[in-house]
Design a protein around this nucleic acid. Structure first.
Lengths: 117, 117
DNA sequence: CTCCCTGTCAACCGAAAGGTTGAGTAAGAG
DNA sequence: CTCTTACTCAACCTTTCGGTTGACAGGGAG
């Protein structure tokens, strides 16, 4: 299986069906059959998706009679946002510094044209 | 290739090597060879990783002499954070409502909350 | 008890991912 | 022009992924 937790979360959310499942679980808990109903795949396939989400820590399943309601664990999202925010901030700060450098350079900057659009 | 943009971004960031590349590009632009140096894989493999990142819109490459400096496009991160924040907020709000319901139930609430109001 | 409903496990299949090697292209440097 | 550097493309290989079918377990309901 995937090595680190962050990879597991990103990988779990890389699938549209799994993201849709997460979206629906954000509204309410649901059973496997309820979750599988809208999709054009078998229940087993959805069960597999749920296992991927569970391995990523995004979802938990509790036994309740013969039903196994699935519950969204939203705290794992923090892993993703923290990672992204860190590098976004770094990139933005670097961009700001670059701006400063360019501003302090009145002479011909030897740069070529960048992106065409 | 992957269908929707969000899947492409999540999928691109699901690989540790690619996340490391993103982390390093947040500090400074770099060429393919520079990026490939620390890893124990061939330059071709890193070139493939960069193509995945480029297809996801996370990275752009501009020709500059025979070098192709790679640049991080941090704005695509917004796609991810927006998606996550939406469902995180939904889940939290739902949790808050659940709390309200539990509080409004005078029958055996197993809660250890103090007097709510 | 026997059905039936819910859900998982196991084996298999095709397609995609991540890696390799080898050849090919584009643009200085000599 | 030739050589070298920097990189990509193409073919191939192996593993993983998303899906299937089929068999099975665990509780109610009759």
């Amino acid at each position: 299986m995937a090595a680190d937790p962050l990879s597991r979360v990103f990988s779990a959310l890389a699938d549209p069906t799994r993201r849709d499942i997460v979206a629906r679980l954000a509204v309410a808990d649901a059973t496997v059959n309820e979750l599988a109903a809208p999709y054009d795949v078998t229940v087993q396939a959805v069960s597999k998706h749920l296992r991927v989400l569970e391995d990523a820590g995004l979802v938990s399943r509790t036994r309740e009679a013969q039903r196994r309601p699935v519950h969204l664990e939203a705290t794992v999202f923090d892993l993703v946002t923290k990672w992204i925010e860190r590098y976004r901030r770094e990139a933005e700060e670097r961009y700001r510094r670059l701006d400063d450098v360019l501003r302090s350079m009145p002479d011909d900057p030897p740069q070529k044209e960048g992106t065409p659009s």
